[in-house]
Design a protein around this nucleic acid. Structure first.
Lengths: 243, 243
DNA sequence: CGTACCGTTGAGCAGGCTCAACCGCTGTGG
DNA sequence: CCACAGCGGTTGAGCCTGCTCAACGGTACG
């Protein structure tokens, strides 16, 4: 098997996760080998989708798992009351397509223009069974997502709106990807206020007010609607940690 | 390699998860082979711990993963404010011991007397790398836990205390294990009201009041402190689904 | 049998939700 | 090119529910 060209490898999936075990490597990234990425690229399909496109709907048969290459995606659920709960925001190197008994448990939609890898579950399963190392990377990724879920329950247990929003922004600052015009303390928020509200469990009015409060307290400065700049990092971090 | 005795196998770990893929098998249980369970038993240690024992503390070096055989465990976090957030309740066939960079991210404590399997991560990793099928079971289990985490965020997004409690009880009714004196609509709640409050994000007073409300509305009947009987299943289910 | 913790109940307060009006940007069609 | 509609976002007023503080009751365990 000949070595794939660099250009080809750059168009293959990769994953991001903090390992549960101690490692010397960059803790931010788990490393798929070129060969593993190539194999994933082979069974998968690279998709280029416009903003707002629905990727799959709740309860639809789940034939695929998706990996984000570029852009942002949201997974959400429509509740009987009409309320929407956002389960997760996904960014480059994230996986999504959580299913139960062969059906997706929520709806996925592109927030921005996105590039995705669509991996057929059947073939992925075969691949994982033949490559325990690759499977271990997926396992690490799931572990990472579980930790994030725990972090979120802590967020949702906070009583103060400003604190919740601060924790959210703090979380997003890690997700923020280079090459999107970000500086060190500039956090991109591609989603709407409504989406944020549905994620952190507040009404959108309260999110709006909390934003104003953070700004008034001199911790952050909103740059347009989809970016925040953390002005006073120490005080901001203190608020985030003050649970 | 000789086949292990039945008695020995009954003393080996197993896992419980709803598969993400369609299967014909009992959707409630994923099946470890006898050989896999035997191998887990070999690298692991069976522990018998009294109620209230601390299994590990937050930030302690994480050398083990645990599987519950009998009893109930809680994973929680002490926040700087002194508040506690319960991350999860664990029951037979559940896994716990979530870590990040080699350290546990929360504290685990026995609620009742428990029997655990303590699996050394290092050896488990080797085992998983040699047995992709076994690893796949672990992967399925993690997927299952992610779904539960999503379900919980929906719970935490509810505004009404009674509804939250109802969803919690509903969730516990699935966890409830036979052989604990349960009848079909009798749900065991081994944890304290305080623990429940720290899990569903309410003050313990509100949990108490919500319990009274559910009872007053004729949906449930509390049997002592650690059991509920669902009296009016239809109305109860309606409240649970009415998000 | 006592003691400490768990749980219940009550009164008052505060923070977030709801309803509602208003602003500003975007995209569309005349 | 402009007018207008529509959506996302902000701001305000009032209500409601869950939190806090506090006292009391009950149960489990030594």
């Amino acid at each position: 098997m000949k070595k794939p060209a660099v250009a080809q490898i750059d168009r293959a999936p990769s994953l991001r996760a903090v390992p549960f075990d101690r490692t010397v490597a960059d803790p931010e990234t788990i490393q798929l080998t070129d060969r593993q990425r190539e194999q994933l690229a082979r069974i998968g399909m690279r998709l280029n989708l416009p903003a707002r496109m629905v990727i799959y709907r709740e309860a639809a048969p789940s034939h695929w798992v998706f990996a984000v290459a570029e852009g942002a995606v949201k997974c959400f659920r429509e509740l009987p009351s009409g309320k929407r709960v956002v389960g997760a925001f996904l960014f480059p190197r994230d996986l999504f397509g959580l299913a139960e008994n062969g059906r997706y448990i929520n709806c996925a939609q592109a927030i921005t223009r996105v590039v995705l890898y669509r991996l057929p579950i059947k073939e992925l399963r075969v691949l994982l069974m033949h490559d325990a190392g690759l499977q271990f990377q997926f396992l690490s990724k799931l572990t990472h997502e579980l930790r994030q879920a725990q972090r979120r329950t802590i967020l949702l247990n906070r009583r103060d709106a400003a604190g919740r929003l601060a924790m959210f922004i703090d979380g997003m600052s890690i997700e923020t990807v280079p090459g999107t015009g970000r500086t060190d303390d500039n956090v991109m928020l591609p989603m709407t206020r409504s989406d944020i509200a549905a994620f952190i469990g507040l009404s959108l009015e309260t999110v709006s007010r909390a934003s104003a409060e953070l700004e008034r307290r001199g911790m952050v400065k909103f740059i347009g609607r989809h970016a925040v700049r953390i002005v006073d990092q120490p005080r901001f971090s203190k608020l985030v940690a003050d649970v």
